Computed example of a mutant assay.
Amino acid sequence: MQMLCQIDTPDYASWKTAFDDDYEERMQAGLSQLQIWRDADHGSTVLVLFEVNDRKRAEAWIAKEQGFGGAMTCTFLETV
């Protein structure tokens, strides 16, 4: 299963630093980063694709991240 997260950030550089620092927590949540995209026109929207090894832990990670107040939406995806 994969998960696609859209994050809206006014400061990509600061977001990326914090995201990189959160690596260990994502691993503990059963998430492996597959790809990151950035909006080519505005740069304020970031999409991150993860491989999900444990949906319940991934959902807990999402709740924690959304608790910081940033705009983030995530969708779980499966290959059909």
Rank of each mutant, 00 (worst) to 15 (best):
W15I: 01
V48Y: 01
R38E: 06
A29E: 01
F50Q: 01
K64W: 04
Q6P: 03
D41K: 14
F50W: 05
K16N: 06
T9N: 04
R55M: 14
N53V: 06
K64L: 07
F50N: 00
F68I: 08
P10Q: 14
G69R: 06
L47F: 13
E25T: 12
Q6T: 14
I7T: 04
D39W: 06
A40K: 11
Y12D: 02
W37Q: 09
F50D: 02
D54I: 07
Q28V: 05
V46F: 02
M27R: 15
Q35F: 06
V46Y: 02
D39M: 06
K56P: 01
F68T: 09
D39N: 11
S44A: 13
A60W: 01
Q35S: 09
A18Q: 13
A29H: 00
I62D: 03
D41S: 12
E24C: 04
F68S: 11
F19N: 06
L47D: 03
A13I: 11
R55I: 15
L34F: 03
W37N: 07
L4Y: 01
L47A: 04
S32Q: 15
M3F: 03
N53G: 14
T9D: 03
T17N: 09
A13T: 14
E51L: 12
M72K: 07
S44M: 12
H42V: 09
A18E: 14
K64S: 07
G67A: 12
D21T: 12
R26Q: 04
Y23S: 13
G30F: 01
D8A: 07
K64F: 06
S14W: 04
P10Y: 10
A58H: 01
S14C: 07
D8R: 08
M72H: 05
L34H: 03
E24I: 07
G69A: 04
F50E: 00
T17C: 06
A71L: 13
H42C: 08
V48F: 01
Q28S: 11
D11L: 12
P10C: 09
V48K: 00
A58R: 00
Q33W: 05
D39C: 09
V46W: 02
D21H: 13
G67E: 09
E24K: 14
L47N: 07
D41W: 12
Y12W: 06
S14I: 08
D21M: 13
D21Y: 11
Y12K: 08
P10L: 15
D22M: 07
W37S: 07
F19S: 08
M3A: 04
A63G: 05
L49G: 01
D20Q: 10
R38S: 06
V48H: 01
Q66M: 11
R38V: 13
F50K: 00
F19D: 05
D39S: 11
D21K: 14
I7Y: 03
W37R: 04
T9M: 04
T45F: 08
R57Y: 08
T9C: 04
A63K: 13
D21F: 11
V46N: 02
A58M: 05
R38D: 03
